[in-house]
């Protein structure tokens, strides 16, 4: 029974995409996933554009002090189980903006990231795979309830 539920979760990752101020390179690749060429709907992935319906938060771009709050707000509105996928160099580490005074050097300073999809910009195939892997990670996490990934983001922020 649980296996079936997990299977269903893996086969139906709905995403909400948050652009934290990217150059739009990654965003175009995210949108490319929806086109007939890549057609992520065949994996059950739907861009629902609403955290209340979403399972996966896909973040592109450099997180900064202004939009960290928005990101947290969105994450808070997503029902469990939920996952975060950081897409592109900027989301991973700040990318070429790493040294800027206002940049928070990656999404994982704010939210617990499950999957990092590197690239500038990553290929659509990579993004789709990242989303699918995120659901795997969720399943793993549910089997080991007190994993590292559950650590409070604020705490992790302090550690940095």
């Amino acid at each position: 029974m649980f296996n079936f539920v997990h299977k269903c979760r893996k086969k139906s990752p709905w995403i909400v995409h948050f652009d934290a101020g990217a150059c739009n390179g990654c965003d175009i690749e995210v949108l490319a996933c929806l086109t007939p060429v890549y057609d992520v709907e065949r994996f059950g992935i739907i861009n629902v554009g609403n955290p209340k319906h979403a399972d996966v938060l896909v973040v592109t771009g450099t997180c900064n002090r202004r939009n960290a709050r928005v990101l947290r707000n969105l994450y808070e509105q997503m029902p469990e189980p939920r996952a975060v996928v950081a897409v592109g160099a900027c989301a991973l580490s700040g990318g070429i903006f790493h040294e800027c005074y206002n940049v928070l050097k990656g999404v994982d300073g704010i939210l617990p990231v499950d999957v990092y999809v590197p690239g500038c910009a990553p290929r659509p195939e990579a993004i789709a795979e990242g989303v699918l892997m995120a659901m795997e990670r969720v399943e793993q996490r549910s089997r080991e309830p007190h994993s590292q990934m559950q650590a409070e983001p604020a705490e992790r922020e302090e550690r940095r």
Binding site: V5, C8, E80
Partner: peptide, 13 residues
């Protein structure tokens, strides 16, 4: 059906 089962397995908000 996958979608529905998944939705039922989610947290109640």
């Amino acid at each position: 059906f996958y979608d529905a089962v998944k939705l039922f397995s989610k947290q109640r908000l």
